[in-house]
Design a protein around this nucleic acid. Sequence first.
DNA 1: AACACCGCGTTTTTT
DNA 2: ACGCGGTGTT
Length: 720
Amino acid sequence: MDVSPLLDALNDAQREAVAAPPGHTLVLAGAGSGKTRVLVHRIAWLVGVDRVPEHAILAVTFTNKAAAEMRHRVQSMVSDLGRGMWVGTFHGLAHRLLRRHFREAGLPETFQILDSDDQLRLIKRVQRDQGLDDARFPPRQSQWFINHCKDEGQRAEHLDAYGDGLKQVKIAVYAEYEARCQRSGLVDFAELLLRSQELLLRDPHLLEHYRQRFRHILVDEFQDTNEIQYAWIRLLAGDTGQVMVVGDDDQSIYGWRGAKVANVGRFQEDFPHVRLLRLEQNYRSTANILNAANALIAHNSERLGKHLWTDGAPGEPLTLFAAYNEMDEARFVVERVREWIAQGQAATDAAILYRSNAQSRIFEQQLIAAGVPYRIYGGQRFFERVEIKDTLAYLRMLTNPDDDAAFERAVNTPSRGIGAKTLAQVRARAATDQMSLWRAAGDLCDGGGLASRAAHALSDFLQLIAELGADLAGRELAEKIERVITRVELVAHYQSEGAERAQTRVENLEELVRAARGFVLQAEAAEDDPLVAFLANAALEAGESQAAEGEDCVQLMTLHAAKGLEFPLVFMCGLEDGLFPHMRAVEEAGRMEEERRLAYVGITRAKRLLYLCYAEQRRWHGGNTARRLSKFVSEIPAELIREIRPRIQVSRAWQSGGPGVSPVANQCAIKLGQNVRHDSFGHGVVVNVEGAGEHARALINFEQVGSKWMVLSYGNLEML
DNA sequence: AACACCGCGTTTTTT
DNA sequence: ACGCGGTGTT
């Protein structure tokens, strides 16, 4: 059996995983150890060697991107397209179950998915109606509470406040929110999982059906599973399903949103006879980079234990750059990127990583100034843009008029004279009669009780929706969207916001129509209404922000967003105590190890060259604050690091623990990193200081003319 | 309905 | 410092 060509290109550990005998398997796969490869080959093995029918395989990932990649790679390996095989995200698969069995799940056929934005609006609405003060009961906290409860598998009725008044309020909000979702046929992200779990629990026949069907369950990034996802896998597996989970406890960085690394250990207890395999050979990074990562992560105590190794070359040492301030840091990084590109390397092979999104701006500025193409990940997503959501709200109304979230958005966008007062009446009626806003509005129009102007405006809206419904029936998906945009006069509406803004909005609307035209129903969803499927897809797959794909550009993203990716050249920036590890993580117990894992993830992204950067001074929350090098850097053996400070030789402030100001600089009341302006040389940064009193001189790095020594008592420098 | 002002938060983010 | 969201004013 092991002569299968499937195993040829694999190492021993990988082979063992791919050709694992029947039973449960836990694969601890270190960074860059060929994790995805193993999963894909395993599926191919099951189908090709073990003769498992494709429909008996369920493969789960976390992100759409990972699911798409897996689908793609499986298709290229398994002769025929992965037909009947379920490959998707937890949410996508749960959604599929609910669509198939909407009746048993207690949902309307046209139920829609509530994204977090809509969810927050709805919660705000609920809280306001319950007379809660937003300041005392922040809606965001309620949202977090509700999602957290659902992630833990708990319904409002299961919860007990134990006399905690605040919790009592949250539970009440949860209950009312859920009631409204149910009335409107809306399902939020966490609900997808919880509801589909309940569906299976409540319907033994259905559960048995799926247990019989999915004999093989594979889970990627298992360390990121939360309580409900874990329970979901367990439930589906039952006693018959064979589960292979692949994960790396050292790369668990989503504890703050409910992921439980403990699930990795639990898996071994909850499932019988788990075969534990380790993938420890790294094929990605040079030995130096890998050793740095190993040394760093060794500082964590809660580990299952794993030691990555490579038989590759040591490669270059890591480079540590101490910048004066964040501007200097950005300049340095951009300069290195330019050199990289000048050497004929691809820009896309370089990544600038940072802890928080706020850091991206300065890099963006410098990249623009240097004319280097770049792409920032993690901006606003396509389907979350206002114009898209406005348009989709109408389509949602047409699909399911009881969708209150859609009603609230569409009813006065563009403004058509339906003000707060009128809406309050509609909401009140809906509340008393326990009906949707749509039906309450209808009743109000029919039954009078509204001021005539309001009644007109409202009935115009109701009529608009009715007419649109009639007009769109039977048309193609893309045409429906086009007609909504025209009929509702959305373009004119956005025009009032200013020409430039309107221009992008219109372009996005065109993109939306294009997306609809190119929308292909998944085979499994063929029986669904294309519009319903399109709307669900829009929520589940919110889409990347800037789809400028194909262009060769530097990649900018947070460390979190970098997980799963690799780059020949990596810059980890802002390695300063308080920023990374983040202040908030230092305060909360258990978070420090997660921060360290995040650093580990960052380091292991690099294939060949890794730069560690920090600024001794940084503009942060207003003031200019002195920074100290991140303790994570000191956890990397010094012999792996080459430190460069090209323009300054002062005491190493971070080592003595003091602020990033040289003693010399201190005496003359001019700080390194100080921004200055000179009448003829323009703007610059103080880079070094010598002497004292009248003889004190400073090396200034001017933006326009480069570095110059200036005697402070002569040079007419303006401190900025 | 548009604009101004005030207060607050300010890590990470998928689905 | 800054931007956002929510509230109050015209």
